[in-house]
Amino acid sequence: VLKALERTRQLDIPDEKTMPVLMKLLEEAGGNWSYIKLDNYTALVDAIYSVED
């Protein structure tokens, strides 16, 4: 979780936006981090930006 938060902080995305999206992605992935961690957490960042749209 810390590495995911560090990555999104680099992009000026607050933890308050990151955590709900991260928890949803983890739930959808059955707790499997490998998809979320791919390409420096690209799936997480993309999911956060899609929620903002």
Rank of each mutant, 00 (worst) to 15 (best):
L11W: 05
G31V: 05
E27N: 09
E28M: 13
N32D: 15
L25G: 00
L5F: 04
L38T: 09
N32Y: 05
N40F: 07
D46G: 08
M23N: 08
Y35T: 14
M19S: 03
T8G: 02
D39L: 06
E27H: 11
L26Y: 03
L44F: 01
L22P: 00
G31W: 14
I36R: 00
V21G: 01
S34G: 13
L22W: 00
L5W: 00
I36L: 08
Y35K: 13
E28W: 10
D46Q: 14
A29W: 15
K17F: 10
L11A: 06
L44A: 01
E52C: 12
T42G: 13
Y35H: 11
M19D: 00
I13M: 04
P20E: 12
D15Y: 06
L2Q: 15
Y49K: 13
V45C: 02
G30W: 05
L11G: 03
E16R: 08
M19Y: 10
I48Y: 03
K24E: 05
D53M: 13
Y41K: 00
I13A: 01
N32C: 08
G31N: 09
K37D: 10
N40Y: 06
R7H: 09
L38H: 13
K17I: 15
M23C: 11
R9K: 04
A29F: 15
K24I: 06
L25R: 01
D53K: 13
T8V: 05
R7L: 08
V1S: 05
I48D: 02
P20D: 09
V45T: 06
N32V: 07
A4P: 03
I13H: 02
Y35C: 11
D12P: 03
T8C: 14
R9Y: 02
D46W: 08
L5R: 00
S34H: 15
V21C: 07
K3N: 12
V1D: 05
V1C: 14
V1L: 14
E28Q: 12
G31Q: 07
K3H: 13
K17M: 11
V45G: 00
E16M: 08
Y41N: 00
R7G: 01
R9D: 02
A4Q: 04
I36M: 03
E28Y: 08
N40G: 08
K17Q: 10
Y41A: 00
E27C: 11
E52D: 14
L5Q: 02
A43H: 09
M19R: 04
R9W: 03
L22S: 00
R9T: 04
Q10S: 13
Y41P: 00
W33C: 03
D12L: 14
V21L: 06
D46Y: 09
K17S: 07
A43T: 09
Q10G: 10
S34E: 15
S34A: 13
L11S: 04
D53V: 13
M19W: 11
S34R: 10
L25P: 01
A47S: 06
E28N: 09
R9G: 05
Q10E: 12
M23V: 10
E16V: 09
R7I: 12
K24W: 09
I36S: 00
S34T: 14
Y35I: 13
L5M: 05
E16I: 10
Y35M: 12
L2M: 12
K24D: 06
T18D: 02
